[in-house]
Amino acid sequence: MESSITNTSTRYGWAMIVLHWLIGIIFIGQFVLGFVMMRIESQRTAFELIQLHKSFGFLLLGLIILRIAWRSGNAPPPLPSSVGSLERRTAPLAHFALYLLQIALPLSGWALVSVSTLEIPSMPFNLFVMPNLPLAVSDAAESFWTAAHWYLAYAGIALVVLHILAALRHHFWLRDGVLARMITPSSGRE
């Protein structure tokens, strides 16, 4: 059976599956890394972890933009007929909120490093210097973007947990194949 890169009427294609899981792993990993880097005592290790966190943040931003672009030209398979009307209305809103947070979170981090009075350059994976956003440097702006980044991170994790619980509900309780179609790609003939 040949797998397809594009979605079909019943399953996701390889492109969406790879982007989904890669973004999910990086997003959860970023939360863990952010939590650890702010609590580590070694300043050198903390600095290196912060640089790694920024690198993955820029990567996440690029991947989510790619995913949204791919999805705009490659519609997801519809939900099974067993899915109720409330979930049919809320699922697109939850996905939209996830996309929005996955864009807002790295942008808020980029804004934070752009306004930081420390003025430490961002070098994604030590490959190049990422220019700062054109924002004024100040302690007040840094405090604002620090809080915004923190609140967005916790909101993002809450939405990811809700997303995971919904997927597990579909798989183990409803047994309707919603999770399976994000694991096994379409054959292109469906």
Rank of each mutant, 00 (worst) to 15 (best):
T10N: 03
L179N: 03
M1C: 12
L66H: 02
G109A: 09
S42C: 10
G34V: 01
L49H: 04
L60F: 12
P121I: 14
A155F: 14
A158H: 07
P78L: 11
E119D: 14
V115K: 00
W70L: 11
G57L: 05
G84R: 15
F27W: 13
E2Y: 07
V137M: 05
A15M: 07
E190F: 10
L22E: 02
M37S: 05
L19I: 03
V32H: 07
V160E: 01
F128V: 13
V18E: 05
I164W: 02
I25M: 14
Q51N: 08
I103R: 02
L133K: 09
L162P: 07
A141D: 07
S42V: 04
L100C: 12
M38N: 11
T6N: 07
S85M: 13
W150L: 13
S3L: 09
R189I: 00
L165W: 03
P124E: 08
L66P: 01
F96R: 15
F96Q: 13
K54H: 12
G29N: 08
F31W: 14
L86Y: 15
M16Q: 03
A91Y: 11
T10P: 01
A148W: 09
P106N: 14
A148G: 03
I157M: 07
Q30K: 10
M1V: 12
N126I: 04
R71Y: 06
L52A: 08
I68M: 12
W14E: 03
N74D: 10
P134N: 14
N132G: 13
L133Q: 11
V129L: 11
S186Y: 04
L165T: 03
R169W: 00
L52C: 01
I164T: 02
H171W: 00
A180P: 00
L105K: 04
S143L: 06
Y12P: 03
I64M: 12
L66G: 10
F31Q: 07
A147Q: 09
I5N: 11
F125R: 15
T8P: 01
D176V: 00
A180V: 02
A69Y: 10
S143A: 14
L168W: 06
F128D: 01
G34M: 07
A167K: 03
